[in-house]
Design a protein around this nucleic acid. Sequence first.
DNA 1: TAGCCGATAGTTTTT
DNA 2: CTATCGGCTA
Length: 739
Amino acid sequence: MEILSSAGLLAGLNSEQLAAVTWPAQPALVLAGAGSGKTRVLTTRIAWLLQTGQASVHSILAVTFTNKAAKEMQLRLSALLPVSVRAMWLGTFHGLCHRFLRLHYQEAGLPKTFQILDIGDQLAVVKRLLKQLNIADEVIAPRSLQGFINAQKENGLRASQLTARDPHERLMIECYAAYDSLCQNEGVVDFAELMLRSYEILQSNEVLRSHYQNRFNHVLIDEFQDTNKLQYAWLKLLAGEHAAVFAVGDDDQSIYRFRGAEVANMTRFLHEFGVSEPIRLEQNYRSVGNILTAANAVIAHNASRLGKNLRTEAGSGEKIRVLQAINDIEEAQFVVDEVKALHREGLNYMQMAVLYRSNAQSRVLEQALFRAGIPYKIYGGLRFYERQEIKHALAYLRLTVNPNDDNALLRVINVPARGIGARSIENIQAAANETGISLWQAATSLAAKNSKIAAFVHLIENLQAQAAQVSLPELMAAAIYDSGLMEHYRTQKGEQQERINNLEELLNAAVAFKPQESGFNLEPEYDENDPLSAVLSFLSTASLEAGEHQAGQGEDALQLMTVHAAKGLEFDGVFLTGLEEGLFPSEYSMAERDGLEEERRLMYVAITRARKRLYLTMAEQRLLHGQTHFALPSRFVDEIPEAVLHYLSAHKNSLVSRQQTTQRTNPFHSRSKLAETPASTDFDGFQLGQNVHHERFGTGVIIDATHKAEGARLTINFGKQGIKELDTVFAKSKLTIIS
DNA sequence: TAGCCGATAGTTTTT
DNA sequence: CTATCGGCTA
């Protein structure tokens, strides 16, 4: 096989990219702007390191956040190099930690068959724990405890390392400790535990630490701005003194602070790894000039940044189309009309996306699209391996490989119903608590007295016997059919066909599953002749790669998703909807410190998704939680230079543009006569939803009003200035109606 | 043990 | 508005 020359590998890179790819074996921080060829730089660097003999596949550690990104890198890498990238430690933080723990389960104090808890499983454990400790939901809400535990773990802190500031916190910490020991007893680990446990082992076990520190001399990280405290510490520990850490990220695209991501890790990296200046990738290969101008202008309003300005060699392109609709329904209709028009012009639906800040906004869009017969695909919602029937089927498998998994037992002991009711389960739990054994052990001891329990025990024992002998698909089939699960869904009334299909799909997945490719079994310890290894891999993959959000691949469909979900994606045409104060930027975020900057980064991410055409839309009125809300256009729209914007009127064939030269004190407020709000009561000359100007507070919208003996009392949302209550008797002279 | 009812809450979510 | 959950009843 011909080996590509180094020159061939590097051909076509721009000077910035070349500098990054061929950076010497020293720490580097690459500031990779949106659409600047980040993945290419990352993969080419790895290929270059390998090809020039600076590194071997064994000495490279490459980390991503998503499975998608990891797969993408693996794919591109194998296209660049004839070597097998299988042996490389390339994967997600959690995937790699998982591999580490499987390899060193003994050092980690875990059973060989330990199982992974996803968020749903974790919540179930937390609920069970609180019940066990007799703590009411009102005292500690399960979700808040779950959040607390995860946040602490992501900060690298165990319960024993925490000090309480108040009694409530002390209780939370006690629960955290109890939770950890519960998980330990049951042989299960949550996502954060995968990381924390790995980190702790590396820290305490010198043999392992020096082994890995010596092994990895190149550590590469993607999306570095999204790392949390623990991930940073883990990387630093693994890298040791000598590894060349190559961190790639974009501080302007840090949008996961609510999940513990710390942008500050970027500056921290510069200091702690002695990097004087980041390498900037500012050449954008995605968007036309006007879109980049908008993105640059918006993000320039943020104070805390490392600084970066995207440029393109493409032309300025079309202007960004802006539309303020009367309400959310009209906004959705506009999107429908434009999507239709673009599709007629030859653009695939797939190449267009409708983005919104929160999932709740999708409904109106969905209805309009459905009515118009436009195929669409919504991202978000339940993923394949999170579905009830799938989790049930997998719980049988989990119980088979790890009978101490109380979670799994409780999930399936009476699904399908086999006469083990609440009181029987209570008996089992009581027996287990008494002697400190697992539910499974308690159940086996109670089987002699209870035939229903005996039947269940027999079912699981039968699966266990098969596990050692039959293949994964056969075991999966046994779990689905012998348990009666399939029969259960077949005989249940209602729309169960979907669940049956999913169970069949699960069987297909088991048949198609290749443990060697699951990314967890690349080490010599993996025994491909041991059926149990395949089952463990399958279960782990199910937890760590919960699958696609929605099926229906291959179909040409319009893409609907939140801005968060759109990160990393790109489309020819993008509709950025719901650009209203309070919604985007969201009200919640504005209460938080630096919350507005995070929202602005989100806006930056949203804008930079578009290649050629970008629409910014907003509604004056929107139905939220069953109530009509009035809002002003998002401040982010005002932050975009007028020169790249093109205002559209809200009516008929939508593309009718408003004269560019129209005096533009505030184009949003020059509402057309046709678009007048439906008759509303008069409040001393004012109306609900009206836009007004106040000499001190600026522009606002009347969101509430009450009649008074004399005049009226108006509640006005002045956006940045806040919501004010004004009395017309006093304020009338200071208020001007502008629409 | 399913099914119904009322109360409740309701940003974003890579693993 | 509307999805979800816990408690209660048939």
